[in-house]
Simulated scan of single mutants.
Amino acid sequence: MSTPVHNPADALLLIAPSCPHCQSVLHALSDLVKSGDIGRLEVVNIAVHPETAQEVGTRSVPWMRIGNYELNGSYSTGELKSWAEKAATGAPAGEYIRELLEQQQLDQAIAYIEEYPDSLPQLLDMMQDEEDSLSVKFGLGAIFEALAGSDLLKTLVPELGKLATHDKANLRGDAAYYLGLSSAPEAARWLKPLLDDPQDDVREIAAEALDMLGQP
């Protein structure tokens, strides 16, 4: 029997009679309740209560919420135990956002960031992780584009400005693009030096970003 985690998170599981993976996920979560890794498990059959699926915004099952983490699809007992531990200990939100992007659940990643804005700086750390998959890299770009012009993205301008001076050209280019998306006038102070960047593509991105800010 595993050692119970500190302050175990509660879980909500949505299932349906025709779901091929729901039984295995239900069994796994039940085992985690028995072991103390999850404090309480609520199970809802959406064939009986379709309004619950509407409330959480899902059309597919198995869908589960463990603490603040929402997961969709088939997961093993070990994977669910890991997420239960992360939910209980407050693991970095970047791990959860990365999981969502790996599963191509972009809308859910954006919704999570909007609900928990303190998780936004995690995107900057993810930008610098060269080992992330293409799904994560493309997903990060899509998140920044979805946040274009928002107050959330404006809060990242100083940190993006620092990345605009990075020694790696790809990070300077990404930072320049996201600074343009911010619509923050102060972003220009970091973009203008990039007009003299040694890399052609970085100079081009910086010029386009300044155009986006209305400063050609």
Rank of each mutant, 00 (worst) to 15 (best):
A87Q: 02
P62E: 06
T155N: 13
K154M: 08
M127S: 03
N72P: 03
L26Q: 14
C22I: 05
L181E: 03
S30K: 09
S133G: 10
E130N: 15
Q122G: 08
E186K: 10
S24I: 03
P121L: 09
G141M: 02
S18M: 07
T155Q: 10
Q54I: 07
K34F: 00
A87K: 02
I66D: 01
D118M: 12
R98M: 10
S133F: 06
F138A: 09
M126Y: 00
M1G: 12
G39P: 01
D151H: 07
W63C: 06
S74H: 11
G161C: 13
L160Y: 00
V157S: 05
I205N: 00
Y178T: 07
S2F: 04
L124E: 11
E85D: 08
T3H: 03
A11R: 01
H21N: 14
T165P: 02
L163F: 10
A187T: 04
Y116R: 14
A53E: 06
K81C: 01
L152D: 04
L29M: 15
Q108K: 14
Q199D: 12
S182Y: 02
L194H: 02
C22R: 00
L195E: 14
D125N: 10
P198I: 15
S182H: 07
T3P: 00
F144C: 11
A142W: 05
A209M: 03
L147P: 00
E159D: 15
C22M: 04
L120N: 04
R59M: 11
L152C: 08
E159G: 01
Y75H: 10
